[in-house]
Amino acid sequence: MTERVVSLDLAGITDKAGLMDRCARALDLPDWFGRNWDALADSLGDHTLWPEDAVERGLLVVVRNWQGYAQARPDEWRTAQEVFGQVADHTPALSVHLALGGSS
């Protein structure tokens, strides 16, 4: 059985608030999601918040169109990468990949 794939498309995102909103939508996070780095890390690492089929199969988050955000907010983007990387390192069923190509 393959992982559940979630596309996190950051096209048009130029700030942290936009990133957090896009994460909340793409990952279907609860209304009480705090929209800060700690809350993002906690949500990504908490398999009870994942889509139901991802709990057994694993979750692959593919981050697309991230380059504009990285250019607009390089410090925030570094923090986002650290959060994604640290959570993935400590959550065996979670993988986060950066798409290097276009919006396909």
Rank of each mutant, 00 (worst) to 15 (best):
G58L: 05
G34S: 14
R78G: 07
W37R: 01
D42V: 13
R73Q: 13
E82T: 07
N36D: 15
A80V: 10
A54F: 04
Q81D: 04
V55S: 09
A54H: 02
E52W: 05
V62S: 12
T48G: 07
F33C: 11
A72D: 09
A54T: 01
A80P: 00
A41E: 04
N36V: 12
D31M: 15
W66Q: 00
S95G: 11
D53E: 15
A39W: 03
L44I: 09
A54P: 00
V87C: 00
G85H: 03
A93Y: 08
V61R: 03
V83I: 11
V62D: 08
W66E: 08
W37F: 10
R64G: 01
R73P: 02
G85I: 00
P92G: 00
A41S: 15
A54Q: 00
D42I: 12
A80L: 14
R73A: 14
R57W: 14
G34A: 15
G85C: 06
L44K: 01
W77V: 00
L94C: 05
L29M: 12
L59C: 05
G34F: 10
T91R: 05
N36I: 10
N36Y: 13
T48E: 14
G85R: 02
A93S: 14
P74M: 07
V83R: 02
G58A: 09
E76Q: 11
Q86H: 10
L29H: 02
D31K: 15
L29F: 15
P92N: 07
G45C: 08
N65M: 05
L94R: 02
A88Q: 09
L94Y: 08
N65C: 12
G85N: 01
V63T: 04
A70M: 11
G85V: 02
A88D: 05
T91H: 06
T48M: 11
V87E: 00
D46T: 08
W37C: 00
A93F: 10
V87D: 04
A39M: 08
W37H: 01
D31S: 15
T91G: 03
F33M: 09
A80Q: 07
A70Y: 08
S43N: 04
R78S: 10
A70F: 11
V63A: 06
G68H: 09
P74V: 10
N65K: 04
E56P: 01
W66I: 03
P74E: 03
P51C: 01
Q81H: 07
D75P: 00
Q86M: 08
R35L: 13
V83G: 04
N65P: 03
N65F: 06
W32V: 14
D89E: 12
G58D: 05
W66N: 01
G34W: 08
D38V: 13
H47G: 11
A54G: 03
G58I: 07
P30T: 03
R78A: 13
A41C: 13
W37I: 04
R78E: 11
G85Q: 04
H47P: 13
A88W: 07
W32F: 15
T48P: 08
T91S: 12
V83A: 03
Q67R: 13
T48R: 10
R57F: 11
F33Y: 15
T79V: 10
